[in-house]
């Protein structure tokens, strides 16, 4: 079983999934509603707000798609057919990681199109680097981070319903709860630590396409650590 086979089959599954198109359309419609408000209701919004509205739908959908990369195999038991040797287990992980990268590229690419077309429509200045490279890069990091995080959790928690609940809590509930906690009363160190934990900053950072260089370094390092941990543990788990 080769990485290319796992990846190719996953690409087919992704492209045939009608929920992918549905969630992209919903995300684009949300962004379009804000563009409408800016154009016709003099809404005082910036381009970041448009990406933020797009991100309301796209972040949760992307996180669920990333979990589903592994979940369908786990739920149906077909994962045992993939995991018949150490090499196959590792090829599976790499194949799924590439599929997550593709998903991030798709969501980031559509975000780029939304930003470019919105700016053109509203007569705003078009910044190619900010509107193309940034969304694609951030969405790819988002998808890879959550794919690896949920893959790691899935090595220990095999109940697919629980995994979906964990995904939704991680992407929806935790960042909102942290946002609502009045961090002003906490010490500077605690505030800084919380602000630099990826599961707290990743969703908002992706929605508003705002990841500072220190957060990018933390995220990239964590992705490497997550990958190495998954790569090691996947060879040790019984199925």
């Amino acid at each position: 079983m080769q990485v290319s086979n796992v990846f190719r089959l996953e690409v087919k599954n992704i492209l045939k999934n009608q929920w992918l198109y549905f969630s992209l359309i919903i995300s684009v419609l949300l962004a379009s509603a804000l563009v409408y408000a800016i154009k016709f209701m003099q809404g005082p919004f910036t381009i970041k707000a448009i990406s933020g509205f797009y991100g309301i739908g796209s972040t949760i959908a992307l996180a669920i798609f990333c979990t589903k990369l592994y979940l369908d195999d786990l739920g149906s038991g077909t994962i045992t057919l993939f995991f018949s040797s150490q090499k196959n287990r590792k090829n599976y992980l790499v194949g799924k990681l590439l599929a997550a990268l593709l998903l991030g590229f798709l969501f980031g690419g559509v975000c780029s199109l939304v930003l470019l077309s919105s700016s053109a429509y509203l007569g705003w200045e078009i910044k190619l680097l900010e509107f193309i490279i940034e969304p694609i890069l951030i969405y790819i990091l988002f998808s890879i981070f959550y794919m690896l995080l949920f893959f790691l959790i899935g090595i220990f928690e095999r109940n697919t319903n629980n995994l979906i609940i964990i995904t939704i809590i991680t992407v929806l509930a935790i960042p909102s709860v942290v946002e609502r906690i009045k961090l002003e009363k906490a010490s500077v160190i605690v505030r800084e630590i919380i602000n630099h934990v990826p599961i707290f900053f990743m969703v908002q950072g992706t929605k508003y396409l705002q990841l500072s260089s220190d957060k990018l370094i933390i995220l990239s390092s964590l992705i490497v650590v997550l990958f190495m941990t998954c790569y090691y543990l996947i060879g040790k788990a019984n199925y």
Binding site: T80, F83, K236, N238
Partner: peptide, 9 residues
């Protein structure tokens, strides 16, 4: 399962 590589420990 051991024979098929599903159980590794």
């Amino acid at each position: 399962k051991i024979l098929c590589g599903n159980i590794v420990d």
